[in-house]
C-alpha cells in the first residue's frame, strides 16, 4: 500500500506555505537574518508540536514565521516544499500564503510574493509541477485589513488565482469578510474559504452564500447538517480535507473517527491534503497512508464506493 501511495500522481489543494517551514530551515534562516527563535534546538521545536487546538498551533506557527524577512527566505521555504512533494509524485499544487503574517511585521508584500512566485516558476520548469497561488486573509484580523491587503495584492493579480480565509476560525465567521471577497471577485479572482474545521456548519453556509466559495477548506463538520451535506453533494463543491491536521489539532481524537471516508461514500468531492505538514507530521503521502490505515480505505476500485486511487465525483 505504501508503494502504491508513493507512486500515485497527486494534486495538493490545501497547503499553507508558511506551514512547510521545517525547524532545520527555520534555524538556518533565523541565523542568517539574526532573528532569535524561542527554542534552543530543532529537537526542542519538534517537542513543542503537541497541540491542544487550532490556537495552540497558531501561536507557534506565527513565532516560526518571524524568521522570514527577505525574498530569498520565501523562495527557500517554497522551494524546499516543492522538492519534497516532487519526491512524492505531486503533479500539481494550489498553495496558500498569508501576506498579513509578514506585512504586519514590516516585510513588504512584494518581497513575500516575489520569493514564492519565483520558486513556483522554477518548480514548473525544473520539476514539472504546475501550480496556482491563493492569497489568504487572516480572519482574526478585521475585514478592513483584508481589503487593504487586497489592494496591495492587485499589482500582482496575474500571479494569484484567488483569495481565501484562514487562521482562528471560531468567533470569526465568513460574513466578516463579505466586502473583501466581493471586491476580489470583482477583480476576477476566485474564492475559497476555511470553514467547518472547528467552526460550526453555519460557517460553511456563509462561505458558500456570502463569499461564493468555490471550494471549502476542511469542511469536515458539514456532517452535522444533513441539508448542507445534500447541497455539497448536489453542487459537487470540493472539500479540501487534511486528515493528519485534524487529528493533530484534536478535531478528531483518532484517525478512525475521521469523517473522510463517510464524506466520500456519501458522494461528496472530498480531497486529501497536508495543511501545515512541517507541524502536523506529514506531507501528502503520509496523509494518504494515515487515512488509509486509520479508515481501512482500499487502494484500487472494488465493490466499495470509494478507493484511494479513483475517489471521484459522481
Amino acid at each position: 500500500m505504501e508503494q502504491f501511495i508513493q507512486g500515485m500522481p497527486k494534486a495538493e489543494l490545501h497547503l499553507h506555505i508558511e506551514g512547510t517551514l521545517e525547524p532545520e530551515l527555520m534555524f538556518e534562516i533565523g541565523e542568517r537574518n539574526g532573528v532569535s527563535i524561542p527554542f534552543a534546538s530543532v529537537e526542542e521545536v519538534r517537542k513543542a508540536y503537541e497541540f491542544s487546538d487550532l490556537q495552540s498551533f497558531l501561536d507557534i506557527y506565527y513565532a516560526g514565521a518571524n524568521v522570514l524577512l527577505k525574498e530569498q527566505d520565501f523562495y527557500d521555504m517554497t522551494w524546499a516544499y516543492l522538492q519534497r512533494v516532487h519526491a512524492q509524485n505531486v503533479r500539481h499544487v494550489e498553495i496558500f500564503f498569508d501576506p498579513q503574517t509578514h506585512t504586519d511585521r514590516g516585510v513588504p508584500f512584494e518581497t513575500v510574493i516575489t520569493g514564492i512566485h519565483r520558486a513556483l516558476q522554477d518548480a514548473e520548469q525544473q520539476l514539472g509541477i504546475s501550480n496556482k497561488l491563493i492569497m489568504c486573509f487572516l480572519r482574526h484580523l478585521s475585514g478592513e485589513a483584508a481589503l487593504e491587503t487586497l489592494e496591495q495584492a492587485l499589482p500582482f493579480k496575474d500571479w494569484i488565482i484567488g483569495v481565501g480565509l484562514d487562521s482562528s476560525e471560531v468567533g470569526h465567521p465568513p460574513q466578516k469578510f463579505t466586502a473583501a471577497f466581493d471586491r476580489a471577485r470583482a477583480e476576477g479572482l476566485l474564492t475559497v474559504a476555511h470553514a467547518g474545521e472547528e467552526g460550526p456548519p453555519e460557517y460553511i453556509w456563509e462561505a458558500l452564500d456570502l463569499l461564493h466559495a468555490k471550494r471549502i477548506d476542511h469542511g469536515v463538520r458539514c456532517v452535522e447538517d444533513e441539508k448542507l451535506v445534500e447541497r455539497l453533494r448536489n453542487e459537487q463543491i470540493p472539500l479540501t480535507v487534511c486528515p493528519l491536521s485534524n487529528v493533530k489539532l484534536c478535531v478528531y481524537d483518532r484517525m478512525a473517527d475521521h469523517s473522510l471516508k463517510r464524506l466520500l461514500d456519501a458522494g461528496l468531492c472530498a480531497t486529501v491534503n497536508s495543511d501545515d505538514p512541517a507541524y502536523f507530521g506529514g506531507y501528502m503521502n503520509e496523509n494518504f497512508l494515515a487515512a488509509q490505515q486509520g479508515l481501512d480505505w482500499c487502494a484500487t476500485p472494488s465493490r466499495r464506493r470509494s478507493s484511494i486511487g479513483r475517489a471521484r465525483m459522481r
Partner: peptide, 30 residues
C-alpha cells in the same frame, strides 16, 4: 485521487491529462 484533480482550478485539458495519468497508474497497479 480523481477528486483532487477535478477540484483544481486548472483548465479542462490539463485536468483530463492528469486524471488519465492517474487512471493509467491505478490500472497498472490493480
Amino acid at each position: 485521487m480523481r477528486n483532487s484533480f477535478e477540484a483544481t482550478f486548472l483548465d479542462r485539458s490539463r485536468k483530463d491529462a492528469l486524471m488519465k495519468e492517474l487512471d493509467d497508474y491505478v490500472a497498472t497497479a490493480a
